[in-house]
Simulated assay, not measured.
Amino acid sequence: MADYDALLLLSFGGPEGPDDVMPFLENVVRGRGVPRERLLEVAEHYQGFGGVSPINQQNRELLEALRPVLDVPVYWGNRNWHPFGEDTVRRMKDDGVRKAAVLATSAFAGYSSCRQYYEDIKRISIEGGPELIKMRHFGDHPGFVAAMADHTRAALERLGRDDARLVFTAHSIPVSMAETAGPSGGLYEAQIRRSAELVNKALGRDEPWDLVWQSRSGPPQVPWLEPDVCDFLRGTDAPAVVLVPIGFVSDHMEVVYDLDTEARDVAAERGLPMERAATVGTHPSFVRMVRELMAEPEPVPCPLTCCPAPRRHR
């Protein structure tokens, strides 16, 4: 068992008002050469929700759910918005924290979903500050699976259709990034498929299910994982669907816009009955999973050659 004296919840961050949106997006794409027109387009998604991403409030709720089950202090820092990780680590140093487990709000392998969090940890670490240990991928952990299964079961009950097809969704990434995820490549998609299989099994279902992708943001000439969720909904012959956002741990903007807005509009146009399962959020099984991960032996860091940064296309 690793000797942690704190937990750091390390997340993506999100704006909490209209004036935050563009500065936040500029932080997200810094150094990537993303056209301002694209930022303005994405900004409209946030402004449609009052300029507030749900992710920060959901992280606060997760912190409150974790505190009663952990016997160490719990901290929170973000990559792209307040509270920034570097500010949080300085506070941890002042509080005398020596060694902290780091829970990244992403369950799977890949550059954006894992390697970039290692880069964050290196960037925010300071001399005399706590040693920061990123916890392992957890998409196959029984606590994650049980939480997703419960939320999927609830969505099936809301839909009230025995013939509904489960359609698991995750963030699309460039094919080149998917091919280099993990020591031997392909681990991002393989882990997500494994999680979907486990959730389907936990529900006691024998019916086929699908894996689709969402939230593509790259230039059109670069291949990304397909099919897109909206394209799938336009072409499916399923009589009803439940979207299961297996690739996300909270109902943040890419869930509430891409699934609850765009995908729901496509389903409505087709007259296709659709429900969306909740993400793990603060489900008790997920909260207990964090405690169990902290009790495991300290994980071995991924090799530096694993999940390399993608080549930027301009």
Rank of each mutant, 00 (worst) to 15 (best):
N80C: 13
G129V: 04
R123T: 10
R79I: 13
V97W: 06
K134L: 15
P130W: 10
C114Y: 12
L132M: 06
I126G: 05
R136A: 15
R90S: 09
A104P: 12
L70K: 05
K99R: 15
M135I: 13
K99T: 03
S113T: 15
V74G: 08
K134A: 11
M92S: 03
D87W: 10
I124K: 03
Q116I: 12
R79P: 04
R91K: 14
Y111V: 07
K93P: 01
V97T: 05
R136P: 02
I121H: 05
D95N: 09
Q116H: 08
I124M: 11
C114R: 15
P83E: 01
I126L: 10
Y117C: 02
G96T: 06
V97R: 09
D94V: 11
N80I: 12
K99V: 03
G110R: 12
W81C: 07
P83T: 04
F108H: 15
I133Q: 00
S125W: 00
N78C: 14
H82W: 13
D71Q: 11
V69M: 08
D71A: 14
R136T: 13
G128M: 06
D87P: 01
M92R: 04
V89M: 08
Y111W: 13
S125M: 06
I124H: 01
K134P: 01
W76C: 05
Y118Q: 11
G77M: 05
V97S: 06
Y117I: 07
A104E: 01
P130D: 07
Y117E: 00
G110E: 04
G129L: 04
G110S: 09
E127A: 14
G128I: 04
V69C: 09
P130T: 02
S106N: 08
R98P: 01
V102T: 05
H82K: 08
R98T: 11
V89N: 01
G110C: 08
P83F: 09
